[in-house]
C-alpha cells in the first residue's frame, strides 16, 4: 500500500485528479470506458461512483481519473493524490470507436467532460490522426491540461479564457472550414451541449446518468433511444448521437 494523500480537503466544484496505481486491468482500458469506485467503507455514500478514464499508463499499469468535487463520494476520493488500495471495478462499458481510415478528428468537451476525451485524443494521436480538441465552459477552468501532439482550443462563455463563446460555435466554424472532408467527431459534456452538438453533426457522444450497479443488472441508468431504453453502463456510455432521443 502506498497511497499518497493530498492533505487538505478541496471545496465543492474543485477539479481533482487521482492516479490509480497497480491496477491489473489498466492495459485493457480503452477511451470512453469507465470504472466504479467505492468511495468509503461504510454506508455513506452507499453506491459506487462512476469515473471516466482520463489517461492511462499501460506499462506502469496505472490510470488517472479527473473529476469535479460534487458530494461526499468525490470529496472522499479527492483526498487521494495517488492510490493503490481503493475498491475499483472495471473496465466497464463500451468505449469510443476509432476509424483508422479517417485522418481528422474533432473532440468537443464541455467542462469536466474533458476527462475521457484526453485519453481519446492521446490514442488518436498514436494512430497518426490529426486531433483538435475544443474545450468549452462557462468560465475559466482550473484544470491541469497538457495537449501533446494535438491542438487544444479553449473557449469560455464569459471570455475569461480563450475565445469568448460556446464550444458549438467553434465546432460549427471547424466543420465548415473542413470543406466536407471526412471527420470523426466525439463529444462529452452536459446533456444540453451534447444535444447542441448532435444538432450540428452526427457524432459519438459519451453520456452520463446516475447508476447503481454499473454492470447492466439494475436497469437504473436508462437513456431513451430510437430502439427503446438503453443502459448507459452496459450499452454505452458511448452512443451514436443519432440513436438518442434528445
Amino acid at each position: 500500500m502506498s497511497s499518497k494523500w493530498r492533505g487538505t480537503q478541496a471545496a465543492k466544484g474543485t477539479v481533482c485528479k487521482t492516479v490509480i496505481r497497480r491496477f491489473e486491468s489498466a492495459p485493457r482500458l480503452i477511451p470512453g470506458q469507465f470504472v466504479t469506485i467505492r468511495c468509503g467503507t461504510g454506508t455513506e455514500p452507499l453506491l459506487r461512483r462512476p469515473f471516466a478514464v482520463h489517461r492511462v499508463n499501460r506499462e506502469e499499469k496505472s490510470f488517472e481519473i479527473l473529476y469535479e468535487i460534487k458530494g461526499e463520494g468525490t470529496r472522499f476520493l479527492s483526498q487521494y493524490e495517488e492510490a493503490d488500495d481503493l475498491d475499483i471495478l472495471g473496465p466497464l462499458g463500451n468505449g469510443f470507436k476509432i476509424d483508422l481510415n479517417i485522418k481528422n478528428a474533432i473532440l468537443v468537451a464541455g467542462g469536466i467532460g474533458i476527462a475521457p476525451l484526453t485519453f481519446l485524443a492521446e490514442e488518436l494521436v498514436k494512430e497518426k490522426i490529426n486531433v483538435t480538441l475544443i474545450l468549452g465552459s462557462k468560465t475559466k477552468l482550473d484544470i491541469p491540461l497538457s495537449a501533446i501532439g494535438y491542438k487544444l482550443l479553449i473557449c469560455t462563455e464569459d471570455g475569461s479564457e480563450g475565445t469568448k463563446g460556446l464550444a458549438t460555435d467553434l465546432l460549427n466554424e471547424f466543420v465548415r472550414a473542413q470543406n466536407f472532408a471526412p471527420l470523426q467527431i466525439y463529444a462529452c459534456g452536459p446533456k444540453a451541449m451534447l444535444k447542441a452538438v448532435a444538432q450540428i453533426t452526427n457524432c459519438q457522444v459519451s453520456l452520463e446518468e446516475i447508476m447503481a450497479c454499473g454492470v447492466g443488472a439494475c436497469l437504473g441508468c436508462a437513456v431513451k433511444t430510437k430502439d427503446g431504453y438503453k443502459m448507459v453502463c452496459k450499452d454505452g456510455p458511448v452512443f451514436n448521437s443519432e440513436d438518442i432521443i434528445w
Binding site: 452507499l46 446518468e209 447508476m211 436497469l219 437504473g220 441508468c221 436508462a222 437513456v223 431513451k224 431504453y229
Partner: peptide, 16 residues
C-alpha cells in the same frame, strides 16, 4: 422514464 435511481441516506430510491 429516467432518472430511475436516487441515493438517499444509507439507501437507494429506485423506480425502474
Amino acid at each position: 422514464p429516467p432518472p430511475r435511481i436516487a441515493e438517499t441516506p444509507s439507501g437507494i430510491l429506485n423506480a425502474i
